[in-house]
Simulated scan of single mutants.
Amino acid sequence: MMKTLLPTGRRLELVSETVIENYSFGPDGTVAAILGEKNGPACAPLFRYRVLSADSIELLDGDGVFATWTHIEIDGDVLRARCNGQARVFRIG
């Protein structure tokens, strides 16, 4: 299995004033997520992830590919990636 930069066993929290995106990547290929809006509705889906390259992954749900993360970079406690083509910054907790 190809390795990735993802910090397994730690929580990623999107840096955003309005959107909630939290992810916890397990070493077994699972991803627990909390997705929604701050002060609004949220859901907590469970995904699987597949490593595409050292800096790219796919998040999979029951219907197939939910999201593709590319250009993953970690600098200290910050992870940057392009998620479905959009730049995202996450705090690593």
Rank of each mutant, 00 (worst) to 15 (best):
I20H: 04
D77F: 12
E37K: 14
I74F: 06
V19K: 10
I20K: 03
P7D: 06
N84F: 07
L5K: 12
C43A: 15
V78W: 04
T68M: 03
R11M: 13
I57G: 03
I92M: 08
C83K: 11
F90L: 09
L46R: 12
D28L: 08
R80S: 14
P41G: 13
L6Y: 10
D28Q: 10
T4E: 07
F47T: 02
V15P: 11
E73I: 03
D61S: 00
L12E: 02
S24C: 10
I34M: 10
G9C: 07
S16N: 01
L60W: 03
N22T: 09
A42L: 11
S24G: 04
R50C: 00
A42I: 15
V51C: 06
G26Q: 01
H71L: 01
Q86E: 13
S53L: 06
R50I: 00
P7V: 07
T8W: 13
G85E: 13
P7A: 10
R80M: 14
V15M: 14
V51Y: 01
N22P: 04
G76C: 00
T68F: 04
R88W: 06
R88H: 13
H71T: 02
P45L: 08
F25M: 02
G76T: 04
S53T: 13
A44W: 11
L35V: 08
G29H: 02
S56H: 05
I74T: 09
G9E: 12
D77M: 15
P27D: 14
G40I: 05
N84Q: 04
T8K: 14
T30Q: 08
E17F: 08
R88V: 15
V78D: 01
L79K: 12
F90P: 11
W69S: 06
I72V: 12
A42W: 14
A54L: 09
V19L: 07
E73G: 09
D77T: 15
N84H: 08
G9H: 09
T18E: 13
M1V: 12
I20E: 02
L6N: 04
T68K: 06
W69T: 01
T18S: 13
G40V: 05
M1D: 15
R11W: 09
P27H: 10
T18C: 07
F66A: 06
D61V: 05
L12Y: 00
K38G: 04
E21T: 00
W69A: 07
A54N: 11
G9D: 09
V31D: 09
R10P: 09
P41C: 01
K3T: 08
K38M: 14
T8Y: 11
L5D: 14
L5C: 12
Y49L: 09
D75Q: 10
T68A: 03
T30Y: 05
F25W: 01
T18N: 07
V31G: 00
